[in-house]
Nucleic acid binder design. Structure first.
Lengths: 233, 233
DNA sequence: TAGTGGTCTAGACCACGCA
DNA sequence: GCGTGGTCTAGACCACTAC
């Protein structure tokens, strides 16, 4: 039994976005144009576009068109940066330091990125401040075959924007796994907190629009008046 | 400008579910029956039902009908209990102890429940085990005017099932706010962990289908091989 | 004014569950 | 076999945007 037409069209459109035929910020063809091209009714195209809009894979604006989302700094920060104040106020992280290194993947990282044992990967280690004080240490691990981030030159605060602009990779979805731990030594040093301070530890896998894993990271957060907001529906 | 028809119908259906006209586990009238009753086309009713299904407020099953979701134990546990093993394996909490008390609301709780300062509330304090060891302490705060949970008799493991069966309240949505802390004394005592153990602290507000806040809770989790799973789309 | 997505309708046929 | 929701089509009109 074949998948419904509208789901086939959905996949077609995802493919075309992924291979860069429709680029971030650009409008897709109109519903009628797509319907004519794909030889289905406009209603079927609409249903496909609705499911994409629902997953934040396209942006529909009445009177204007259907757009491939741009990973703007604001979007990246609000959608994928979940640390807020106690009443849910957004916080804006301030970069303090960052360093890109090429190294052999630790076993757990190689596994999470689906690479062979001993593969070379890139690690971005960065420290950011919240409310003026150093509060986050992030180790971001990348497969250079997918995201060959260059070590030279400062990276922007919103990494996902950089992935899209410089490497054509749009992060569409992420899965976080949170636990509490005593700050490891590297966190103590980076954030200047006392030995054994309880910190929020987050493991994240991030995926592009085709569902491919493009990043894995390990982050540590000082949660003094700060928390990770999650919504369950 | 009035809201679109299908949204008005959505609200009508939510109202009717909330006032118990359609009960959990029961089927709603068919699309055609609703269309005839509400004097709109079947397609419009369908669109309303689709938005409800999308928010998990109804359950659609081809060939059978559209159902008001029952908060089964499984559903409550999988949807609103987010602690998993490192690979995302679900864990099933085992109740160890629980106590319901009536007391004056602490200021922060009164505020979160929208009650006057000094109002009387119910507190359920319970301890549960994961993987065989005590791992969670939960303080659940209720407005007795909404959820007059009785102190006598054991409560089921899945509280939200109890809210629905015994009080007609269906929890539809929750917002969690997570931070890390050194275990407070009550957590040390309840879970038997050493002083100062880092624990995951979760603040939750839970809402019914009409959007009314029906519960607030504060939980502490030992995260040894355990984490809180969150999905960002 | 022209073109876009948003709403609403009407009707056909399909896939599924059940008696 | 019948009733349900799921898919697909066709067409009308509205609301918003751009020119």
């Amino acid at each position: 039994m074949p998948a419904p037409l509208y789901l086939q069209i959905r996949e077609t459109l995802i493919d075309r976005m992924a291979r860069g035929e429709f680029r971030p910020g650009e409008a897709l063809p109109s519903e009628f144009a797509l319907a004519a091209e794909l030889k289905v009714s406009q209603g079927t195209v609409r249903k496909a576009l609705d499911t994409l809009a629902n997953d934040n894979l396209v942006l529909r604006r009445q009177g204007r068109g259907t757009f491939v989302p741009e990973t703007t700094v604001e979007r990246a920060l609000f959608r994928f940066f979940r640390l807020t104040g106690p009443e849910g106020e957004s916080l804006i992280p301030q970069p303090l330091s960052e360093k890109v290194t090429r190294r052999t993947a630790p076993a757990r990282i190689a596994e999470r990125l689906g690479l062979a044992d001993g593969a070379k990967v890139l690690r971005i280690r960065r420290v950011r401040a919240l409310n003026g004080a150093p509060a986050t240490l992030e180790d971001i691990w990348l497969d250079p075959a997918i995201l060959p981030v260059r070590a030279e030159g400062a990276l922007p605060n919103a990494l996902y924007t950089h992935y899209q602009r410089s490497h054509g990779i749009s992060v569409a979805r992420a899965e976080d796994w949170l636990s509490a731990a005593a700050a490891p030594r590297k966190v103590e040093k980076a954030l200047g907190c006392p030995a054994g301070t309880p910190v929020l530890m987050a493991r994240r896998d991030a995926f592009d629009i085709t569902g491919r894993k493009v990043e894995t990271r390990e982050s540590w957060f000082l949660t003094d008046g700060i928390g990770y907001a999650a919504s369950l529906a």
